[in-house]
Design a protein around this nucleic acid. Structure first.
Lengths: 151, 151
DNA sequence: TATTGTTATACTCTATAACTATA
DNA sequence: TATAGTTATAGAGTATAACAATA
């Protein structure tokens, strides 16, 4: 499996292996860092920004958010509490099933969600700034293939 | 810029855009999730596992770890405290500059570091399991190009 | 009984500010 | 004075277990 072996980068240099897995870990770290930095510029945590992003298409029940965010329901309660306290989301009881509470964005939450989303897209696109368009397209396609079916 | 536009996935489906940036965010989430799951199997947090991984090539000063992990020095103190309390690392004072403390792995820390590293590599390689080898090589190269110079 | 969500509790992670020890 | 690291403090994030309300 030649594609998993170490790739010599410079003659005579003892570079550590840079296989796909190591690259993915590095990449994830960079993305996470960008996400955290942008969130901070808006006085949000990464988790709060992520929550806002999940609400841009309309109200979502707590149980659904819990599944999407891989969070225990009690953890989600706290996260929603904090952003609700900041006036970015509100809870609405479902009339059909009164056990269910749907979370939705306030006007300010929507503004923050849009702003952070835009900034994140900009910053991440710049990461691939010097990669030719056709390579970039293939990169996008391969990434799509990897994350397909992972939730 | 055609490579940033929405790609129709199925005829008649109103799919959300899957550009590079969105793909990167999804991918980072998957990697982070894998990392967290594996850490948990070893009763570690993601941060603790990440710390162990940074020590596999020998002792590292606190200040260096602080920079590599993007952590304030006080945050690092706590992180190292907790893994030291579990017997996975130790602190060694530097003789040349007695202000400096180097962190190194214990035998058990090294074992855990190797095990989590192996499992992570395995799980991440599987993400690209059905991608042909030459495509995978190009993917690796493009990722390397993106993260180059980001720390 | 099963499901949805909250509360209580404990721990980890993180930052800021003040501090100690060494250079 | 400057640097390396710790302590004190506060808040965010997370899980487990017990609970209340509703289906």
């Amino acid at each position: 499996m030649t594609h998993t072996e170490a790739v010599p980068t410079e003659a005579g240099t003892a570079e550590p292996e840079f296989g796909l897995a190591v690259g993915l870990v590095r990449l994830a770290g960079v993305v996470q860092h960008v996400f955290g930095e942008i969130s901070r510029e808006y006085d949000l945590t990464s988790q709060q920004t992520q929550l806002l992003c999940m609400l841009v298409n309309g109200p979502v029940p707590m149980a659904t958010l819990s599944r999407l965010l891989h969070l225990e329901k009690s953890s989600l309660t706290g996260l929603v509490d904090r952003v609700e306290r900041r006036g970015l989301v509100r809870r609405q009881r479902c009339a059909q099933d009164r056990r269910v509470w749907r979370v939705s964005l306030t006007d300010e939450g929507e503004r923050l969600g849009n702003d952070t989303h835009r900034d994140t897209i900009d910053r991440l696109e710049k990461l691939a700034g010097d990669i030719p368009a056709n390579d970039r397209d293939q990169l996008t396609a391969l990434i799509a293939r990897m994350v397909r079916g992972t939730g």
